[in-house]
Amino acid sequence: MMSLEDLIKKIQEAAKRALKEGKAEVVLGYQAGTTPMAVAPLFARTEGDCDKLVWSNFAKTNLSTYLPELKDKKVAIIAKGCDARSAVGQVVEHQIPRENVYVIGVPCTGMVDLEALKSKEARPVAASDEDMATIKLRGDGWETNIAKEEILRRNCKTCICRTPKMADEVIGDEVPSMTPDDYADLKELAAKSPEEKMAYFKGMVKDCLRCYACRNACPLCYCPVCFVDETRPQWLGKSQDEMDTFVFHLLRGFHCAGRCTGCGACEAACPVGIKVREFNRIMEEEVQKDWNYIPGLDWEQKPPLTTYRPDDEADFIR
């Protein structure tokens, strides 16, 4: 496996090349963060900027979220599989012109789940270091190494696109994909009674603040007016009413159907730790099962709710 240093070098080279060859006016990537265990987005416009580009096991932000704002510019994006898939979705949904986005794909072995990391090492961290497989933490008089494998983000554990093959170029060595999500938990849930299911999901969202951080982090939530902000007619109450909150998550999940690439940005953004992606996964499983559709893998694909087959199955309709 390529070392982290080599990978960063390759990223910087690719970024410079993209600028030089006119493939992009801006390269969207990560730069080192100001605190441990964090990186920040970087909009590199010059060769000098490109030297600041890094790669990290903490690069959880889905950079494609920034693409629609930059749609009039030619942008190169340093993309892990999930970022690249989101970019594909944005192109398919006409949010960015295909000719304005240049995807520099980075094979990815998964990102760190900060909550999981915290459960392994709860002491205050003064500094962090990392290589491809290990996270090294240092605190007041202590040092510890944690294997990344053990603290992967949930979506990374079932990632089917660790190497973004649809990218315009892929740097680094190809990484095999993980075993796809088998939705075992959802299957188990399906066997439960309606009361238990309802209680489970209502419990899941009971702490929701309706801050919409999940929505704002989602690269595919770009509507000028979200249904939650609709006023004429106002359809969804804005308070933290249990039912309104429940319906918010339900419909947010529905709106992601056939579009969500499972990047996990929503979950990562939630300040109260709600597993908001669960609603998306319900749809994801169904979309795959019914229409054999996986979003974000093909620049030409038609989202499942923009098309149909005359023989689509729907046994529940009598």
Binding site: K197, F246, L250, F254, M283, V287, A314
Partner: peptide
């Protein structure tokens, strides 16, 4: 309908 039906059934309607 396929999606909404599945969503509501999963959520316990």
């Amino acid at each position: 309908f396929v999606l909404l039906h599945h969503m509501l059934e999963t959520l316990g309607v």
